[in-house]
Design a protein around this nucleic acid. Structure first.
Length: 201
DNA sequence: CGGCTGATGATCT
DNA sequence: GATCATCAGCCGG
């Protein structure tokens, strides 16, 4: 099920603006190359973190931790939080602009059996719903921070394998600043989207 | 389903 | 010392 038609997204086709990129990435493919094989998933939920947005990690300027957010759009920004989870983001904006898109949920496409072994849970459907679970299954860690997701490598963005459904929009999940902004995007009705039921319709 | 809580460690004040 | 873009487990309805 890894069709030849799966191609890397070219940087020139990625929207530069953060919210536009967050919306654009819904339905696209996330590809993880591992020694054990390839895992692919369909991106079904994202959140935008804009310049001037108090919830964005770049809000207070460049630091060692958030420097990848300032890379040209299409690079990975990975960080560690709550003592146990890695979060995977796609940088947005031109080089020097601190903004990005958090990948919150992916619908499993290929490599599902291997993914399940990675997680010692009895729950089957929610394998990659939620940013922490997503990173755990795809073995995303700080080693991937700063990676070019438009280039051949261990993690990259690919074209959609099937048409995207209706896209919903809501407030972002789990933040404490700038909470009212409608910067979360998701494919409506997709069972792999995280959050409460009301946040999936 | 929805709501709550403790775990856990890097980062910044 | 506080904060934090979360999660699993547990509880009540």
């Amino acid at each position: 099920m890894s069709p030849r038609s799966l191609k890397r997204l070219h940087r020139t086709e990625l929207p530069v603006a953060t919210a536009a990129l967050a919306r654009y990435l819904i339905g696209k493919t996330l590809v993880r190359e591992l020694p054990q094989g390839r895992i692919t998933g369909r991106i079904v939920e994202t959140e935008a973190y804009l310049p001037g947005d108090a919830a964005c990690h770049a809000f207070r300027g460049l630091t060692k931790r958030n420097r990848s957010l300032f890379l040209e759009h299409g690079h990975a920004y990975v960080y560690f939080i709550y003592g146990s989870h890695f979060m995977l983001n796609v940088s947005s904006g031109k080089e020097g602009v601190g903004a990005g898109v958090l990948l919150r949920a992916v619908e499993p496409l290929d490599g599902i059996e291997w993914m399940r072994k990675r997680r010692s849970t009895t729950r089957v459907p929610g394998t990659m719903c939620g940013p922490g679970r997503l990173a755990a299954v795809l073995r995303v860690s700080m080693k991937l921070d700063g990676l070019d997701l438009c280039a051949k490598g261990p993690l990259w963005l690919g074209t959609a394998v099937r048409p995207v459904g209706r896209i919903g929009r809501s407030i972002r999940i789990g933040i404490t600043k700038d909470t009212h902004r409608l910067l979360r995007f998701y494919e409506r009705g997709n069972p792999f989207v995280s959050g409460a039921k009301s946040m999936r319709d």
